[in-house]
Nucleic acid binder design. Structure first.
Length: 431
RNA sequence: GGAGGGAUGACAGAGCGGCCGAAUGUACCGGUCUUGAAAACCGGCGUGGGCUUGCCCACCGUGGGUUCAAAUCCCACUCCCUCCGCCA
């Protein structure tokens, strides 16, 4: 949620920032108008409320001094004012509800460094890495046996069975078998092992309350992309970010515990309502996938450093796995609702000849903290909202595909990078 | 799923229609005393909102209701505890 106080103080700054994301000046004015109206009504109803309280106090006084007549008169006046108060309060609450609704739909202000753009095509590549790059080697050349899509090679090896996945749950649900399933488990273990220095490992529930989904900004705006368990009023989380952001919801943290860093491996559920037919072969886009998330609450001063740390951890994993990747600064048109600044990591996968998004490292400023009401007490005793950041480290289905394609040998076997050997009993080769 | 008990400030815990934003204790902050510390004593000490910055309003799990007036009475819900049932 954007800061209403800032909106009052510098409406033009807010308008200019939101205009970059396509929010019209009129929409912002509407919020401002509702805020003005809300405060006017609030003052009115609070003044009447004050009157009622004062009258009630006097009724009590009159009763105690056995002045029944006076008490009755005062009581009657208070009753009338009480009716007026009810009306004023209802009007106030109605405007407050409208204001809240508009505010919850409003996206975060993009950071100045976010490039201008309409959609994902305008994201700006900031860096590229591949094995041997530092030694001056060119971008890898791939052999024909690596140019095989994973849905062909993995299915042939019996480690991926999309057909049975569809039989169980419908299209875009994967079933991994044998070494394929083990590879997925290995990747989560590998990542969590790497993050264990500094990030507390969490195993959160994957069904969450509406309030929990509201805090990150996934609701109300993206309800169509979420799986709802309506009977119990729960939602399947689209990312570990959801439970982690609410871990300390409503709490006041001490400055000494910041940055407060967490990591969690969870399944992630996405309806992919708006992406019919796009990259749907194999495991490129699934309704359910596994991801290791990195998350932090921190002070505004710590935010840059934490963002860099999360990013470098995500990069580090890809380097250890020997997979080429690139970094993109998301443009204003592709930035997530809650984010102020996001860097995406895309891994190159030779079989499909595509760059695949495997991580999004985002800084939310106090947008989520305001919704989740997570604050910290500063050295001077004052309270301030924390900043939240998160990033995948990493989302596995696409990494899985890139590994299968990149490390496919001429004989059709897959010799996975040596860092995974320990998770395969010493030899990470899939035959 | 059934029966009972509970939810109050950082924590413990009183209050059970009006003088209660809330006793008391602990913790915390400042001061006195002390060579220093401790103890003792004195003072302070929740959050949010509004505006005429001094005041007003809201908040005692959540939502509704009764009343001139609700932490306090009534209803519903959520969560926690105990017991029973069921289950991995």
């Amino acid at each position: 949620m954007i800061d209403l106080v800032q909106l009052r103080r510098e409406p033009d700054v807010v308008k200019a920032a939101l205009a970059r994301r396509g929010v019209s000046s009129a929409a912002v004015d509407e919020v401002i108008g509702l805020d003005v109206e809300h405060r006017r009504l609030l003052q009115e109803s609070e003044a009447i409320r004050g009157e009622v309280k004062e009258l009630s106090r006097q009724v009590g006084e009159a009763r105690r001094s056995n002045d029944a007549g006076r008490a009755e008169t005062l009581s009657a006046t208070s009753r009338t004012r009480g009716d007026a108060e009810r009306l004023a309060r209802e009007a106030t609450e109605s405007v407050a509800a409208q204001l809240r609704e508009r505010l919850l739909m409003m996206p975060n202000l993009p950071d100045p460094r976010v490039p201008e753009g309409r959609d994902e095509n305008d994201n700006v590549e900031v860096r590229r890495w591949w094995p041997g790059m530092d030694g001056g080697e060119p971008f890898p050349e791939y052999a024909d046996h690596q140019r095989v899509p994973h849905w062909e090679s993995a299915t042939a090896l019996g480690i991926l069975d999309m057909e049975t996945g569809a039989k169980l749950s419908g299209s875009m649900f994967a079933l991994y078998r044998g070494a394929g399933a083990r590879l997925l488990r290995a990747l989560s273990m590998f990542a969590l092992d790497r993050h264990s220095d500094g990030y507390e490992e969490i195993r959160p529930p994957t069904l969450a309350l509406t309030e929990t989904m509201m805090s990150t900004g996934h609701l109300p705006k993206s309800a169509d992309d979420m799986y709802a368990v309506e009977r119990d009023d729960l939602w399947a989380i689209p990312t570990g970010e959801v439970p982690l952001t609410s871990l300390r919801r409503g709490e006041i943290l001490s400055e000494s515990e910041l940055p407060f860093k967490l990591t969690a491996q969870t399944n992630c559920f996405r309806r992919e309502a708006g992406s019919a037919g796009k990259d749907t072969r194999g495991v490129l886009r699934l309704h359910e996938f596994e991801k290791v998330e990195l998350f932090a609450y921190c002070t505004p001063e710590q935010a840059d450093e934490v963002h860099a740390d999360i990013l470098s951890r995500a990069e580090g994993l890809l380097r250890e796995l020997g997979l080429p990747y690139r970094l993109l600064d998301l443009c204003t048109g592709d930035l997530g609702t809650a984010s102020a600044y996001t860097v995406d990591l895309e891994v190159y996968s030779p079989g499909v000849d595509k760059w695949l998004e495997v991580s999004s490292v985002s800084w939310f400023r106090d947008f989520q903290a305001r919704r989740a009401n997570v604050r910290y007490r500063r050295a001077d005793g004052s309270l301030a909202l924390v900043h939240t950041l998160n990033g995948s480290g990493l989302g596995w289905s696409r990494v899985w595909a890139a590994l299968i394609e990149t490390y496919r040998q001429a004989d059709g076997t897959i010799r996975l990078p040596a860092v995974l050997d320990p998770y395969f009993g010493g030899d990470a080769t899939i035959r």
